[in-house]
Nucleic acid binder design. Structure first.
Lengths: 232, 232
DNA sequence: CGCGGCTTTGATGTTCATCAAGTAAAGTGG
DNA sequence: CCACTTTACTTGATGAACATCAAAGCCGCG
């Protein structure tokens, strides 16, 4: 948690295009004035399970993971999120309550904090905003449910293939990219062990489906990867 | 889908205590007049994936399952729901959209259908209602997430133990009950095969942790079951 | 009464976790 | 900036957990 800024550049902020589309000008000014921005370095924790929720949190830049940590040091990543993800909202909106899960930066990130109180006031006054928020929230919930269902219906190879395709298609929009996460984190995302994730990546490499250079991944045979993902 | 009733007995309905607590009298009358009730027999489908969503659906009586069915006849049950479950709401609220998953009656059930249009109007007008709905929705989402995280962190015995404890503690509030679902459905709920669910139940029986008589289950050694559930 | 779905148990095989051990990379302190 | 330590990555060998296949009994329903 570095510097705390409050530059009111929200007019251009992506969040405007999400739930905040229906904000009236006065409301928007208010949000903009009272919001805070913080920068996080890769690896830093944004909040932890058990902490009191006082803000609606919105990811402006970077990538975060929303995760559960268990007693025995194991983690499960519920979702990776980037700006524009509607998801970035659901996580968070539990007025007067406590975070059920944790969030940390997977890449250097900028996070906006908007006091829950303000959001609540807007909900009370602005029906269109509420409607939008409800719909976006439910969409986010369904995406998370889909993620878990998908996992449960795939084997190791299918799961790894799916993650790679997801990163290429929905996050980076190209077939060569730097893995934003460690092998361990991929394992935590798909519910398998680190060793087996590595083994599977090596298999894909040997089968010439992908090329690997450290953190850099290139998807060479997208079609085959797709088939594997559709049940390994 | 039997008879369609409209008896305006909503004043006593459990739903009043949920999101509808903040409804103004006129709004409530409106909901009550325009809602429909339908009875479903055990096994009947309430809606299927892909159907157009025109109603907010609320479970008044019985038990339903919310599930995903895959191409190859396999199913995953996302959650079992009974009246009072806040869950019963989230599933459903996707105005102008299409159901992502399916719902069917696990026991004989009564379901209330409230046209989305009305709910939308109330959201637009009644901020307290919106606020409540948002909070309840998010709570429901978190419960589902927790269900999946729990599964992923447990082995076969732990999962079966957990289901039994869940039924006894949160659904029936006693240690002897009739299983509302088939062994196959338990399997679909915990992501294991029917055979292994049966085998595990038999093990528990042989170890005198539970007694089984067809569909009737008695939990004899709750403490041991708890330990198994906390990681078998 | 017979058929199909649900339940049960056993035998077998596959998939994946675990353990082990070594290399590479990245952070840390002098 | 280099030695040191730690963390990430990699591969192999082994065993455990679970799926799959098979066969038979049971129950409810038409």
């Amino acid at each position: 948690m570095r510097e705390v800024k409050n530059i009111c550049d929200c007019k251009d902020c992506v969040i405007r295009n999400l739930v905040f589309a229906h904000l009236k000008d006065a409301e928007f000014e208010n949000v903009c004035t009272l919001k805070l921005e913080k920068d996080y370095r890769k690896g830093e924790i944004i909040y932890e399970k058990g902490q009191y929720t006082e803000h609606l949190i919105y990811l402006k830049k970077g990538m975060v993971k929303y995760y559960q940590s268990f007693h025995d040091n194991r983690n499960s990543i519920i979702t990776l999120s980037i700006p524009h993800d509607i998801f970035a909202l659901i996580t968070i909106f539990q007025p007067e309550s406590v975070h059920q899960f944790s969030m940390s930066a997977v890449e250097d990130s900028t996070v906006c904090f908007i006091p829950i109180k303000i959001i609540k006031d807007i909900i009370l006054e602005n029906g269109n905003f509420s409607l939008d928020l409800i719909q976006k929230n439910n969409q986010a919930a369904q995406q998370i449910i889909n993620h878990f269902l998908l996992l449960n219906s795939k084997n190791l190879r299918g799961r790894v293939a799916h993650v790679l395709l997801h990163l290429a298609t929905h996050i980076y929009h190209k077939d060569i990219f730097e893995l934003p996460v460690s092998r361990k984190e991929i394992a935590e995302l798909i519910g398998m062990t680190t060793e087996n994730v590595i083994r599977t990546l090596s298999e894909f490499r040997k089968e010439k489906i992908i090329r690997i250079n450290g953190k850099e991944i290139e998807i060479v045979e997208k079609e085959r990867l797709h088939k594997i993902s559709l049940y390994g």
